[in-house]
Amino acid sequence: MTSIQIIFLLAAAGTLAAGVFVVSSPKILHAALWLIVSLFGIAIMFALLQANFFAVIQVVVYIGAIAILIIFGVMLTRRIMQDTGLQLTRFWWGAALASLGIFAGLITMLSGWKAADIALPEMSSSGTTQAISQLGQALVSPDAYVLPFEAASILLVVAMIGAIYIALDRK
């Protein structure tokens, strides 16, 4: 077992454990903090996959913006949802059954798929840099993804304006 595999297994175990705490922690603020741990583990995954750009974006966008936004949401709505008592619905066993079923289905599908043990193609550090500049050019090139990129920008602007409008206190 190589060192990179050990790093992967540690990061995967940490991320999954943090994910379990996110969905099971009785205190909602603790769940939000565990979410940050989980998101950081995913940034490690991106780094292991040599997607350095996305590792940084994961930390900046998810941990820096989305997780903080969620913590703000928790704190603004805290008083009513008391931190005591069961935080799961009555049908949590059904949810557990459904998610276990999906997991089992995905694993069965993967075990019957030959390409799952494909070898990792070589990528030098200059190749990683090149991939980033390729992505940047593709996102603004009319031959590639400029239209989805602009649509995503408009979606973000619309979502932000809509969020302000919905959350506005009109009293």
Binding site: T15, I42, F103, L110, A116, D117, I118
Partner: peptide
Amino acid sequence: MIPLSWYLVFSAALFSIGLFGVLARKNAIA
């Protein structure tokens, strides 16, 4: 070297955990 299947199994597990959270949690933020 890490096989591709490790990543796929990991993300399948993470997806299932998230699905459980969506289906079973009471709090909308959760």
